[in-house]
């Protein structure tokens, strides 16, 4: 068994836990953990080809941003909020957990059907990548599940902080899918940095807006945001 599978299993576990958790602080910790594991995946996948200095540097920066800076920003926001629990989600915790499980099944189905169409050509073109392609399959499953569960979190929770965490999970999922599909991008560090910078600024801006919402409404419940309608 390839070592990357352990990492992917940990990501899936963190996804399921976050769907069930109702404490905001626990959610931030989960997303920090997930960020670190997700950043490590390209590193682990590449062990066969040897580790380069730039790859390790990039891993460290990813961990710094996804595992440290972003969670720290989120913790500042959580500490200022009075009620630190998610109250009355639009879909209950058991139901969201169930939806997460269905999401896993669904992504296995999607990945399998994509593979049966495309991978024969791919492996025929790159015979030495057969092993890599097999790993890809699980990577893709994990990526799609993480992205889908992030969307579930984003849409079914009321606290603005949980919505940001949903967005971060979605972004993690897309990063994994990118790792599986678009290897070229990961070789271009300038581009990767730019994407990472965007993510960091996005969380910063969301954090500022969050703080203002908390200040103005005395809560971060998005149910309070309902004045603009047609």
């Amino acid at each position: 068994m390839h070592i990357s599978n352990i990492f992917l299993a940990m990501i899936l576990l963190s996804v399921l836990l976050s769907l069930k958790s109702n404490r905001l602080a626990a959610l931030v910790k989960l997303v920090a953990f997930q960020g670190i594991v997700v950043s490590a995946v390209p590193l682990v996948l590449n062990t066969a080809h040897g580790l380069s200095f730039s790859l390790i540097m990039f891993f460290l920066i990813l961990v710094l941003v996804k595992g440290l800076l972003i969670p720290a920003l989120m913790f500042i926001a959580v500490n200022k909020v009075v009620t630190s629990r998610e109250i009355e989600p639009i879909i209950g915790y058991h139901a969201s957990l169930f939806a997460g499980l269905i999401m896993i099944v669904l992504s296995v189905y999607i990945t399998n059907s994509l593979h049966s169409i495309n991978y024969p050509i791919y492996i025929a073109n790159h015979p030495h990548l057969a092993d890599f392609a097999a790993n890809h399959k699980l990577l893709l499953v994990t990526g799609i599940t993480t992205m889908g569960s992030g969307l579930i979190l984003l849409m079914t929770r009321r606290k603005a902080i949980t919505q940001v965490i949903g967005y971060l999970m979605m972004e993690n999922g897309i990063y994994l899918i990118g790792t599986a599909l678009a290897k070229v991008v990961h070789a271009q560090y300038v581009v990767e940095f730019a994407v990472l910078l965007d993510l960091l600024v996005a969380v910063l801006v969301m954090g500022i807006v969050l703080n203002n919402i908390n200040h103005t409404f005395d809560d971060v419940d998005t149910a309070l945001l309902g004045q603009l309608k047609d």
């Binding site: 992205m147 969307l151 984003l154 603005a160 919505q163 967005y167 979605m170 972004e171 897309i174 899918i177 990118g178 599909l181 678009a182 991008v185 994407v195 996005a202 801006v205 969301m206 807006v209 203002n212 919402i213 103005t216 409404f217 998005t222 945001l225 309902g226 004045q227 603009l228």
Partner: peptide, 24 residues
């Protein structure tokens, strides 16, 4: 504040989907 929250969240999620499209 409500308008900004909607703007940032909806657009960021939308644009994240565009990133997925770029990967495809």
């Amino acid at each position: 504040l409500e308008a900004t929250w909607k703007y940032v969240l909806i657009c960021s999620v939308g644009i994240a989907l565009a990133l997925l499209g770029c990967f495809f």
